[in-house]
């Protein structure tokens, strides 16, 4: 493995493979990054703040959620909690991926900053028949990182000139984007129950108690609903095994 890591030819072919695999995801992320920047500015953030957020957080779903509920001054703990909940999936992704990375422990602490849904999914697929090298992982992570940081900043700068996003229905673009993302998590019975319960609880809490409590209460209700809805299925699976 050390031999493989030090051979420049392998290094370049690994880097090229990473570039090839990440290209479609990077291209698809460009308009989404522009949109994020434009709406963030409309919500009252400065382009510098948008760029800084993308640079340090680098997590699309959590950033979209933060902007959608953005108020001034920013509710720090609420944002941190919502961010942690949305990104909690990274824990499982990192646990599954780290044994497959051909990296030392200290290198992993740097490499996993660049963990995203896309790089994780592509690396898990590659790990089926070979180890995931630092060159492969690094190219994918750095490409998506600069792609996201630059396009969101550019969107913020351009968005300042576009004016009120509600005029073109762009205020609804986030809602539509989220619906698309939610659909990507599956259409199983458990997922539908979780989504319906979360939506209902969040809407009611928003109506009768107010923001920002609807996020945590809706999310927790949806998660609890998934736990309860999955009960019978996991029991029957146990039964069929015995």
């Amino acid at each position: 493995m050390d031999q493989m890591r030090h051979s420049p030819r392998t290094y370049w072919s690994e880097a090229r493979a990473g570039l090839r695999d990440i290209a479609p995801a990077a291209i698809a992320a460009i308009p989404i990054g522009l949109l994020f920047g434009a709406v963030a500015v409309a919500k009252g953030m400065s382009p510098a703040e948008v760029g800084l957020m993308s640079l340090l957080v680098f997590a699309g779903g959590a950033q979209f959620a933060a902007i959608e509920t953005w108020i001034h001054p920013a509710p720090i703990l609420t944002l941190a909690f919502a961010t942690f909940l949305i990104n909690a999936r990274h824990i499982l992704m990192g646990a599954s991926l780290s044994p497959k990375l051909a990296l030392s422990r200290s290198q992993e602490f740097v490499a996993l900053f660049f963990l995203t849904d896309e790089t994780w999914a592509l690396s898990e697929r590659r790990a089926l028949d070979r180890p995931v090298t630092g060159a492969y992982w690094g190219v994918m992570g750095v490409v998506l990182f600069f792609n996201w940081t630059i396009t969101t900043f550019l969107g913020a700068v351009l968005g300042s000139f576009l004016g009120d996003p509600a005029r073109l229905g762009a205020d609804f673009a986030f809602t539509a984007l989220f619906i698309g993302l939610i659909a990507g998590f599956g259409r199983g019975r458990v997922m539908l129950v979780a989504v319906a319960v979360s939506a209902a609880v969040a809407a009611l809490v928003y109506r009768y108690i107010g923001a920002p409590w609807h996020v945590a209460s809706g999310a927790l209700a949806g998660i609890a609903a998934a736990y309860l809805a999955a009960g019978e299925k996991s029991q029957s699976r146990e039964k069929s095994q015995s």
């Binding site: 919502a82 909690a88 999936r89 809602t175 458990v190 736990y227 996991s234």
Partner: peptide, 17 residues
């Protein structure tokens, strides 16, 4: 199942209003 439901449950709660 509960863990898998976290991202969609949070995203739905965010857009529900």
């Amino acid at each position: 199942a509960a863990f898998n439901a976290i991202p969609p449950a949070v995203l739905v709660a965010v857009i529900a209003p």
